[in-house]
Computed example of a mutant assay.
Amino acid sequence: MTKIGVFDSGIGGLSVLNEALRQFPGHEYIYLADSANAPYGERPDEWITNRSLKLCTWLIEKQHCEAIVVACNTATAQAIAIIREHFSNTPIIGVEPGIKPAAAISPKKKIGVLATQSTLSSEKFKHLLDSLVGDCQFISQAGVGLVPLIERGDLNDPELEKLITDYVQKVLDFGADTLVLGCTHYPFLIPIINKNFGDQLHLIDTSSAIIQQLGRKAQIEPRKGATEVKLFSTGDSNLILKQTNQLIQALNPTIQINASSIII
């Protein structure tokens, strides 16, 4: 059994954790939500870097995690290089907007990228765009205000639906046929997008590829036996437990999940 740490600014990384449980059952997972400080997308770069390093230090040194998934696009964009340098003996898996798979499937080669402003402004994202060879056109749309609303836990909030539909409409007005969900919080919004826009857009969520990379880097495989999940939140542990039960236990009813509030 391998102990795997997953952290995000809040509940968004649960979409990545869910995929890890699907691909690699039988391991122990520690999920850390820095909900007291969410969202990261509007924080200064230096703050994001220092905070991400501190959370990884807690996961590795206090919880003895053997591999880490930085399940936050903003933290990956700003801090992944420093985290890997600091913990060079630990596999550190980051996330990034799936613009490469989007470019491969977009019929019209017009692609929208919905992400936090911090991710869209980062050098890592700029290098990712520059690495693509071809005639694709991209429109970057900052999802300002989405993460705090998702963190409230009410995905039926009319304010949340209005905000995401406004952002998606801007992408459609550009002529895009594909939308990259460039924040791990955003897969929670797929039902709303589908309800309002049907099949007008191909939606790209890179959770599967992230966890495949975890398997390669950490050399883990699916195991028989119990899967252990422990959740820690710097905010309201009851909220993250509620969201986790909705997202994960509906698909994996045998998994027992406990949540605790902590100060880091």
Rank of each mutant, 00 (worst) to 15 (best):
Q169G: 02
P222M: 05
G143F: 05
I220Q: 09
I164Q: 05
T165Y: 02
I164S: 05
E151D: 12
D166M: 11
L231K: 07
V144E: 15
D166W: 06
A142F: 00
L231S: 05
D177F: 06
K126F: 08
L160D: 00
F188Y: 14
Q200N: 09
I220L: 03
T227V: 12
I150S: 06
E123I: 15
G134E: 01
K170M: 06
I210P: 01
N156H: 13
L146H: 00
A142P: 15
L128C: 05
K162D: 14
V147L: 12
P148N: 12
Q219E: 15
G215W: 05
I192H: 02
K124Y: 15
K195L: 04
G134K: 00
S207A: 15
S237C: 14
G145C: 04
N196H: 15
N196F: 12
G225K: 12
L214H: 02
V180L: 04
A142I: 06
P187E: 11
K242V: 02
D173N: 15
N194C: 07
G215F: 12
T184Y: 01
V147P: 15
V229D: 03
A176K: 09
R152H: 09
I164F: 01
R216E: 13
T206F: 00
I240T: 07
F232G: 01
L146F: 02
V168M: 09
T234R: 00
K242S: 12
P222T: 09
V229G: 11
D166N: 11
K230E: 10
D157R: 04
G145S: 07
Y167I: 06
F188M: 10
F197M: 04
I139P: 10
I150T: 04
L203K: 06
L132F: 08
G198Q: 03
L172N: 07
I193E: 05
N196P: 05
L241S: 07
L160G: 00
Y167M: 11
I220V: 13
D135Y: 10
C136K: 02
L128A: 03
R216S: 13
P148A: 13
V133C: 10
L239M: 13
R216P: 00
P222W: 03
S233V: 11
V133A: 14
V133Q: 14
E228A: 12
K170N: 11
T165L: 10
E161R: 11
P158W: 03
S208F: 12
E159F: 03
D205F: 06
L214I: 05
L203Y: 06
V168C: 09
I210E: 06
K124C: 10
I204P: 03
T234W: 00
I190E: 13
I139V: 12
